[in-house]
Nucleic acid binder design. Structure first.
Length: 538
RNA sequence: GCCCCCAUAGUCUAGCGGCCCAGGACGUCACCCUUUCAAGGUGAAGAUCGCGGGUUCGAAUCCCGCUGGGGGUACCA
C-alpha cells in the first residue's frame, strides 16, 4: 500500500491548516483542541461500519489527542434533516447501542454542550441564514426546477449517454424573474454556485492530496424546498459552529469533500482536516448487507457478542498497532491508537474472526462472575432463570448459574449459546432421551442398560462433591463391568445432560447435584428398557 | 458513461529501498493432551507481494501504464 506521507511531512496529528498552504508555524498549533464528531442519521439501526467510524473518532479525541496533551472532544450530532426517512425511535436506539458499545460522548443531544442544539432539525434557522447569505453574496441561487423536470433531464442525459447532472438552468435567472417567482410563492431550492474553472484539492490525511477539476463538480442543493438543509450545507455549517477540527467519516463521502471545501471557501471559513475511513465490504465483495449476515450493532448484541470483542475486532479491521498484537482492551486502544496507522484500503468483514475474538474474551478474559452476569438476559429470555435476576447480582438464580457458567466458560462462543449449553444445569427435567445417544458405538442397548443399572446402585452412596473420589469410584466400576472408562462415562453423560458433549463428567455431575443425577439416570434406564422391549429398535 | 479511491495467502494485516526466496492472526489440515466437546500445546499447507514497463548496484517498498475490486454520480445521509 502507499503511505501518503513521507516521514518528513508526516505530522503526529494533522492540523486543519494543511488545507491552507503549508505553514511553518503549524507546529505552534499542536496544542489546539481536537474536536471530532460522529453524526448518524436516525433512519434505522446503527451499522457496524458506522460504529467503527464512531470508534475511530472517539479514539482520536479521547486517546491520541490526550496523549499528545491536546484537549479532545467527541461530539455526537444527529443529522435528521431528511424528514421522509426519519424512523421513530432510531435516535434513542443509536444512543443506546453506542453506549453499550462503550463509547462516551462529551456533547450530544442527550447531554447538551456549549455548541448545541445537537439535533439538526433544531438548528434550521442557522442553515437558512447561511444559505441566504450565500445567495445575497451571489454564491448560491434560487432554483425553481421541479423534481419532474430534473427527473426528465436525467433520463434524457442517460439516453444520450451523457453524465447525469443538473444543467444549471436557474443559475443565471434574471433577478426580476427570481423575485417574481418568490413573490408568487413558487416552490424553490437554493443551489450552490460551483466555480466552473480551477481545481479543488482535498487533502485526505490517509491518502494525501486528491485533485478534482471544478467543472466536474455540481451545483448541489443546499436548502431543500421543505426548508430543511441538505447534508452538505448542514454538515459544513455545523462543523464550523461546533468547532470541529477533524472529520473522520466513511470513504463513501470522498466525492463530496471537494464540494464541502468549496462551501467553506464561499463562507470564508477555514475547513477542518479530513480523513476518510476505509469501507467495510461484504465477504463476497460489495456493500455489507443483510444477505451476508448481521450488519447492525443491535443484531450483534442480540446474538451474544460482547461489546469489547466487537470493539477489538472492529478496531483491527482497518487499523493495526504492530501487525502482531491482536488483543486490545478499550484502554489499550486509547493508549495505542493513531490515525496514521489506519489503512486506507477497504476490508472484508469476517464473521469467523469476530466470533474468535468473542470466544477469546469469554474463554480467557471474562471472570466467571462477569460471564454469569452477561448470560443472565439470555437465560431469562429463554425462561431458564427469573427475569428479576438479570439486574440483581444477589438474586439466588445468580448462584445457580455461576457454577454452570464456570464449567462452560471455555466452550461458549457467544452469550446466545448460553440457554442451549447451560440448559441442563438450570432445568429440573430434561427433554425425553434420544435412545440412540445413550448407546455408544460398539455397545449394545443391553450392555448400556446393565451399566446404568450398576451406576444407579452406586450413585446414592457416591459423594459427587468430591470429584476425584467419584471419578475413582466410577473408573473402578468400569473395570468391574469390563468396560473402558469412556464406554461407561458416555452413557452417564447422556443420562445426566441429555447430550454427548459436556464439560468433564464429574464436575458436571457435581454441579447438577446428586438428586437430579439419580433421577436422570433412572429415567435413562426407563427409556432404555422401553427401547429394549421394542423388537423393532433392538 | 463520467469522477474518485484501493490493490501482500480464502480473510484481517506487518512491511515506508538491502535485515523479506515476505512476519503475525483468523480460517483449514495433522498431531499432542483427553471420559465427550471445547480450551490449550505443537506443527503443516497456503502469497510468482494483481500484471507490464521503468528508476536503482538492489523494489513488496519509488514512478508510469494496464487490469481488477470498490465508492460516488438525489430536493438521502
Amino acid at each position: 500500500m502507499t503511505r501518503a506521507f513521507s516521514s518528513t511531512s508526516r505530522l503526529r496529528l494533522y492540523s486543519p491548516s494543511l488545507h491552507a498552504r503549508v505553514r511553518p508555524e503549524v507546529h505552534g498549533c499542536m496544542s489546539s483542541p481536537v474536536r471530532v464528531r460522529f453524526a448518524p442519521s436516525p433512519t434505522g439501526l446503527l451499522h457496524v461500519g458506522g460504529a467503527r467510524t464512531a470508534l475511530f473518532n472517539w479514539l482520536l479525541a479521547h486517546g491520541q489527542a490526550s496523549r499528545e496533551e491536546r484537549e479532545g472532544a467527541f461530539v455526537l450530532r444527529i443529522e435528521d434533516t431528511d424528514r421522509n426517512r426519519l424512523v421513530e425511535g432510531a435516535e434513542a436506539g443509536i444512543l443506546d447501542v453506542l453506549g453499550w458499545f462503550g463509547l462516551t460522548w462529551d456533547e450530544g443531544p442527550d447531554v447538551g454542550g456549549p455548541y448545541g442544539p445537537y439535533r439538526q432539525s433544531e438548528r434550521t434557522a442557522l442553515y437558512r441564514e447561511a444559505a441566504e447569505r450565500l445567495v445575497a453574496e451571489g454564491k448560491a441561487y434560487h432554483c425553481f426546477c421541479s423534481p419532474e423536470r430534473l427527473q426528465r433531464l436525467r433520463e434524457e442525459q442517460s439516453a444520450r449517454k451523457e453524465p447525469p447532472g443538473y444543467d444549471r438552468h436557474c443559475r443565471d435567472l434574471p433577478a426580476e424573474t427570481v423575485a417574481a417567482n418568490l413573490a408568487q410563492g413558487l416552490p424553490s431550492v437554493i443551489r450552490f454556485k460551483m466555480p466552473r474553472t480551477g481545481e479543488t484539492i482535498v487533502r485526505d490525511l490517509l491518502r494525501g492530496p486528491i485533485t478534482y477539476q471544478n467543472v466536474t463538480l455540481e451545483d448541489l442543493v443546499l436548502l431543500k424546498s421543505d426548508g430543511y438543509p441538505t447534508y452538505h450545507l448542514a454538515n459544513v455549517v455545523d462543523d464550523r459552529a461546533m468547532r470541529i477540527s477533524h472529520i473522520l467519516r466513511g470513504e463513501e463521502w470522498i466525492p463530496t469533500a471537494p464540494v464541502h471545501l468549496q462551501l467553506y471557501a464561499a463562507f470564508g471559513w477555514e475547513p477542518p482536516a479530513y480523513a476518510h475511513m476505509p469501507l467495510i465490504l461484504a465477504p463476497g465483495g460489495g456493500k455489507l448487507s443483510k444477505r451476508h449476515g448481521s450488519t447492525s450493532m443491535e443484531e450483534f448484541r442480540a446474538q451474544g457478542y460482547l461489546p469489547e470483542a466487537l470493539m477489538n475486532y472492529l478496531a483491527l479491521l482497518g487499523w493495526s498497532y504492530d501487525g502482531t498484537t491482536e488483543i486490545f482492551s478499550k484502554q489499550d486502544l486509547l493508549d495505542k491508537f493513531t490515525l496514521e496507522r489506519v489503512n486506507p484500503s477497504p476490508g472484508t468483514f469476517d464473521y469467523a474472526k469476530l466470533t474468535w475474538f468473542n470466544a477469546y474474551y469469554i474463554n480467557h478474559i471474562l471472570t466467571p462472575e462477569d460471564l454469569t452476569a452477561r448470560l443472565m438476559p439470555f437465560l431469562a429470555e429463554a425462561g431458564l432463570v427469573d427475569p428479576a435476576a438479570v439486574a440483581d447480582a444477589g438474586h439466588p438464580d445468580r448462584a445457580r448459574v455461576r457454577p454452570a457458567a464456570t464449567l462452560l466458560k471455555d466452550r461458549l462462543e457467544t452469550l446466545a449459546q448460553g440457554p442451549d449449553m447451560l440448559g441442563y444445569f438450570l432445568t429440573e427435567d430434561l427433554p425425553p432421551y434420544d435412545a440412540a445417544l445413550l448407546v455408544p458405538k460398539k455397545m449394545t442397548a443391553a450392555e448400556v442398560l446393565t451399566a446404568l443399572e450398576a451406576v444407579a446402585r452406586m450413585l446414592p452412596e457416591a459423594d459427587l462433591n468430591d470429584e476425584a473420589a467419584s471419578e475413582a469410584r466410577f473408573r473402578a466400576l468400569a473395570d468391574e463391568l469390563g468396560l473402558k472408562a469412556g464406554q461407561l462415562f458416555m452413557p452417564i453423560r447422556v443420562a445426566v445432560t441429555g447430550r454427548t458433549q459436556s464439560p468433564g463428567l464429574f464436575e458436571t455431575m457435581r454441579v447438577i447435584g446428586a438428586r437430579r443425577c439419580v433421577e436422570r439416570v433412572d429415567r435413562a434406564i426407563a427409556a432404555l428398557r422401553a427401547v429394549a422391549a421394542d423388537p423393532a429398535t433392538a
